[in-house]
Write a protein that binds this DNA or RNA. Structure first.
Lengths: 320, 320
DNA sequence: CTGTTAGCGCGTTCAA
DNA sequence: TTGAACGCGCTAACAG
């Protein structure tokens, strides 16, 4: 008890005894057992479980940084896990997080399955969805203005005269994939220009897959004059393939399509073809998700209505 | 007890009772309290604490992915924390990790202070250092062949005729900074070419700082014909500045220095100036660090001698 | 100011 | 096959 009291401020412990305790603590390298502390009635772990689909994607690691910063400000740590875009792994991860009694969960959901995120399954542990929503799950969420951003970007391309625009994105079954494609399609509708299905590729998860899809697009007999890339993996893949072909020297630079990327990324400015960006800040997305969660963890935020935020994006047109 | 037995395999529990338990578990969303489990005698948390200097740097997030993959294979999770290159935060982070009774620690040390990593302070929890070593700390470590890689890269530049080579890196007080500079300097020595101190900048932690340093280098009256960049942050900063100046159109491309980057990075191939890379795999670095730790956590690895690994790097010369 | 009691959730051990 | 007692480390509440 004396040690416990000393370590929690030293109230009602003689100063010289406190000193002895501190000396012993320093010498022995003693650390209070947080796991034992967390099982006391009315106490929690101070951990926030963060499940993202891919740590190695700079977009998501920056997102995680934002969460971590905001959590650290509130004296909490994050438990980070990778789902690899796999719903089963997400379920296992969330289950593990709950077993460790995280105070809350921040999830970039991998699929549309959501039983494991339901209130009854999480034992009331609050969940915040980020980047993607899951229908019918009454939880807080923060996503981007996907449809609007894609609409704006596509409109800009159409306005500048493009009529054949390629589309590279991830699966339409994924929340962002569906929304971004919807914006792409609506812009076409409003311009009275049909989307050519031959120019639409929607199953690239990796840079290499995006490269392959780009190669296929460029090989068609009537290739697109611009490509809309629904995320940074696809934009980078397209860029790599185009750069490769330019260096191979088969055609001149301006025979290649210009690019519109949903997501900014490092070194985008080196693109040999004009590249515009639908820009937003993954770090801010992480911070916002964390704030939603932390707020919900506060006594006063506990019973607030469900908040579904949508962060704006901004179109940054290529200088050329 | 019946629930406990059912959840740990169902030995000696009547099948129909097991079923009832499982039904109730599913309905209630019950999860065993891992924190409570971990304080039982002879049990551990299954967590590995990972302290890196910057999650948002793709290099380190890929490193973390490698650790996570390897840890997941062994049924463990990682607790990830950011030190922001700050020794005090590292100490606090490690202390927090120990309080949560991590089974082991993987640390990219921020400084040379190491009291908090000593065996006596970690209560015998094994520590593995990655990327950087700390002198006088008898713990396992895995680092890169920094000196050798820098030596090879610099030698290649000198061999191809450069006599004025700039150096951009992080502080010489940092393990990798010191070693990479040493390789740079030794290559000069062996060629009998002195290093011009005016061309050496060693305090850039961020891309923007690296840009500034590059601008200063290019502005000197006798600018370098090549720049050795000791890590990806510095290479990217140099690239951005050079690209910017090329686009500004003041000089022709081949008046700009070529680049040698210690660290590969995404889209390096888009460089307008020749860029060679001293390549290595951060994911493998992470995996190796995790394996060192997991091995040490096994009964048979417990008392093994200290292992200090050095992973090889490979020089990939610019195609041009 | 310092110590004792009790209970958090779990599973080992022992009893029924 | 099931349940009861015990102890892990910690601290609120209550003696002393």
């Amino acid at each position: 008890m004396t040690v416990s009291r000393t370590l929690s401020g030293g109230l009602n412990v003689k100063p010289d005894v406190q000193q002895k305790v501190m000396d012993a603590v320093a010498e022995l390298g003693y650390h209070r057992n947080e796991n034992a502390r967390s099982i006391r009635p009315g106490h929690t772990s101070g951990l926030i479980g963060v499940a993202i689909t891919n740590i190695a994607n700079p977009y998501y690691s920056t997102f995680a940084l934002g969460v971590e910063e905001e959590a650290a400000l509130a004296g909490r740590r994050i438990l980070l896990g990778n789902t690899s875009e796999d719903s089963a792994r997400e379920t296992a991860l969330v289950s593990d997080f709950l077993g460790r009694r995280v105070d809350g969960l921040i999830v970039v959901p991998a699929g549309t399955a959501s039983r494991h995120l339901e209130h009854s399954q999480t034992q009331g542990v609050p969940v915040v969805l980020a980047s993607r929503r899951v229908e019918g799950l009454g939880v807080d969420s923060v996503v981007l203005a996907d449809t609007d951003g894609a609409f704006q970007g596509t409109t800009a391309l159409l306005d500048s005269g493009h009529t054949r625009i390629g589309y590279l994105g991830n699966s339409l079954a994924i929340f962002t994939g569906e929304r971004r494609y919807a914006g792409f399609a609506r812009a076409h509708e409003e311009h009275g220009i049909p989307v050519d299905p031959a120019l639409v590729a929607t199953n690239q998860q990796t840079v290499d897959q995006a490269r392959d899809a780009t190669r296929a697009l460029l090989r068609t007999e009537n290739p697109p004059t611009a490509i809309f890339c629904a995320n940074n993996r696809n934009a980078i893949g397209a860029l790599k393939e185009i750069n490769h072909q330019i260096n191979a020297g088969s055609r001149s630079v301006d025979e290649f399509p210009e690019l519109m990327s949903f997501d900014d990324f490092e070194l985008a400015e080196l693109s040999p073809v004009p590249l515009s960006v639908i820009d937003h800040d993954p770090r801010e997305l992480g911070r916002t998700a964390a704030r939603l969660l932390l707020d919900r963890l506060d006594a006063d935020g506990k019973d607030a209505a469900v908040r579904e935020l949508e962060l704006p994006v901004s179109l940054r047109m290529s200088a050329r």
